[in-house]
């Protein structure tokens, strides 16, 4: 509502009765100024965000550029130098670049997880958005949302009895005489777990796009002789792509920074970048190097969002659904 409306409303509004007291009146008058309204409504929240969010994150940035204790030791780029080992690059010893390679693997896993999440999301959202009977729709969408709100830690380790060597899948395989598959403690375990944990982030925005899709467009394509697949490829896919990409970017940035799932299911070949950050703080006690690794991860995440925004992907849209829509 605009301020003109406020003014108009003020003009016709009867004045508060005198017996409400002068303090109350003064408070109301004071509360009417826009500056006060803005300061009182967002002031506490922004202060809290600054002190307890921005400062802790900025602290990592500060740690990353000091030799040891911030401001008590010299400034340095050695921690970033340890990540991007220039001598290893110039001597073409790429196997020495273990941190860069780990980040590369995390990004690779994130790409695979994003693609798989999108592939899984299309059929279910197409069904829910276009074909599900009206009276079941809300219940069916709720069924997608509810697991999302339960502990991802529990939902992740639930895969251990499914994927392990004597787990459900391999027991079933050996029972019918097939060889067992190495599914746990490798990158396959990481990928399966990550898709499972993050697939709702693509399902929900894609569902919103499918729901909003005018079904008469699909009917028109079909009437004009398009096969189901052609109608999907030419009509449904392009029109729902923004929703898919928004969710995809979100899954990508979540996966690239994953810690819990690769720790529980990934073993050595599924080891991911966030795990070495934790190691620096948990066991190696090299906060400065850990902070540098953390800063690099933040740059990757913010860089991804920046590129996505430049491509016109509305990441905020998926957040709306991913957060408030859940």
């Amino acid at each position: 509502m605009s301020s003109q409306d406020d003014v108009a409303a003020d003009a016709v509004r009867p004045q508060p009765t005198p017996e409400t007291g002068t303090l109350r009146e003064r408070v109301l008058e004071w509360a009417d100024s826009e500056v006060f309204k803005g300061a009182i409504s967002l002031g506490p929240v922004l202060l809290l965000l600054t002190v307890f969010y921005a400062v802790p994150v900025a602290l990592l940035l500060i740690y990353s550029i000091f030799v040891e204790d911030p401001f008590a030791s010299g400034l340095t780029f050695e921690h970033f130098g340890r990540f991007i080992d220039v001598s290893a690059i110039t001597s073409l010893q790429f196997s020495e670049l273990s941190y860069v390679r780990l980040l590369g693997r995390s990004i690779g896993i994130a790409v695979i997880v994003t693609v798989l999440s999108l592939v899984i999301s299309y059929p279910i959202t197409y069904y829910l958005g276009q074909h599900a009977p009206e009276r079941w729709k809300i219940a069916l969408v709720m069924l997608v949302i509810i697991p999302f709100w339960t502990s991802y830690l529990i939902r992740t380790y639930a895969w251990i009895p499914i994927l392990s060597n004597n787990g459900f899948i391999n027991s079933a395989l050996t029972t019918v005489g097939l060889p067992s598959l190495p599914l746990l403690n490798n990158y396959i375990g990481s990928i399966i777990g990550l898709v499972y944990v993050f697939v709702p982030f693509t399902i929900l925005p894609l569902y919103a796009s499918m729901e909003g899709l005018d079904s008469s467009l699909i009917e028109a394509a079909r009437d004009l002789g398009a096969s189901r697949w052609e109608a999907f490829r030419e009509v449904v896919f392009p029109l729902t792509l923004p929703g898919a990409l928004a969710g995809g970017v979100f899954v990508f940035i979540k996966t690239a920074a994953a810690y819990v799932t690769p720790s529980l299911l990934g073993g050595t070949s599924g080891r991911m970048y966030a795990q070495v950050i934790e190691t620096q703080f948990g066991t190696a006690f090299n906060w400065n190097f850990g902070a540098a690794l953390a800063v690099i991860l933040v740059v990757v995440v913010l860089g991804t969002i920046w590129i996505a925004a430049r491509w016109g992907i509305d990441v905020k849209g998926s957040r709306g659904l991913g957060g408030g829509g859940l």
Binding site: L46, F52, Y53, V55, L59, A291, V301
Partner: peptide
């Protein structure tokens, strides 16, 4: 700007925030 500030915590990795908070309260 106010909107973005409030929603930044949704974008940055939670592990980064957890570590930052650990360093912050230790300091």
């Amino acid at each position: 700007i106010a909107t973005y500030l409030i929603f930044v915590p949704l974008t940055l990795p939670i592990i980064i925030y957890g570590i930052g908070l650990f360093v912050f309260f230790t300091q």
